[in-house]
Design a protein around this nucleic acid. Structure first.
Ligand SMILES: [Mn+2]
Ligand SMILES: [Mn+2]
Ligand SMILES: [Zn+2]
Ligand SMILES: [Zn+2]
Lengths: 148, 148
DNA sequence: TATGGTAATGATAATCATTATCATTAACAG
DNA sequence: CTGTTAATGATAATGATTATCATTACCATA
């Protein structure tokens, strides 16, 4: 829980109180590479923190997304999922999603080529539609090694 | 409704009956470039087809997706959306999504470059993770011309 | 280090999208 | 035309998320 000081400091800038639920959620997500749903987070935290409320999980998650600590993602079926957002620029990545078992694999190869193509596309999009691109998302759907 | 004959023919191959709800939904989606939700489809069809059931809408939509007539998409907030899937290869496209007003713009430039990059990535993905890519999805998030 | 103001919490109800159930209807093969 | 049975539509049920509100606990100030 040594990260907590950094988090707290960064967090307080947003005029918010540093609380046990907030620290717990951030701690859990920072320690896993999984992409967890609100319910999975609730079930996990409930062990060490009985009595934590579902509402708090949802509220905290959306706050942590707003303040840039977490990424929120939707793989199309089931609930939204959350992952810790590393501060380093290196960590830009996309996802391979197994349409059979739902497994999510982080993918970060070809980032340079992708960057180049995306940059080009963004320029084109701005000129053609006057649309200001802020972010992009790439997903590959298919079957993971266990599912074919 | 001249398309209906083609649809019907194509549809019957899947051992299914050709019904008024099915034709109505396909007709509506083939005539619009919008990306409609089940509720929007229900509200629209209810005018000309009072008494149509919501269940039928959902069931029919998922059937039409399975059989390749429609694309199903999830822009992350709100309900799933559906669009008519043109048969021509030309029609491969992605989306610009306005994070403020929710507008969805079809985008199909740079398809060749994209194809090339995606092909490369897919080969890499197969080799590295033994993951069989079947489809991919690219979205650009940002602000549309009316929202900035 | 105590304390008061107030943001955050947790229990609960409410909402929204979607799926399940089942009796009734209608497509269509013969 | 008719019987079989797939499809429909009304309704209930589920699952995820948000709203409400009384209670709790951060933390700035003294
Ligand atoms: Mn990830
Ligand atoms: Mn589209
Ligand atoms: Zn799998
Ligand atoms: Zn907009």
């Amino acid at each position: 829980m040594v990260e907590a000081y950094k988090w707290r400091h960064r967090f307080r800038k947003h005029v918010s109180r540093w609380t046990l639920p907030r620290e717990s959620i951030l701690d859990l997500l920072s320690r896993t590479s999984k992409h967890l749903s609100a319910k999975e987070i609730y079930d996990d935290l409930s062990k060490a923190y009985p009595g934590i409320g579902q509402s708090t999980i949802y509220r905290t998650l959306s706050l942590l997304v707003q303040t840039g600590f977490l990424n929120k993602m939707d793989i199309g079926d089931g609930p939204k999922r959350y992952e810790y957002r590393s501060s380093s620029k290196m960590e830009h990545h996309h996802h391979l999603i197994c349409t059979k078992c739902g497994k999510i694999i982080d993918y970060s190869d070809f980032i340079d080529e992708e960057e180049k193509l995306v940059k080009e596309a963004e320029k084109n999009i701005t000129g053609k539609y006057n649309f200001k691109v802020q972010d992009h998302n790439i997903e590959f759907y298919g079957l993971c090694k266990d599912c074919h």
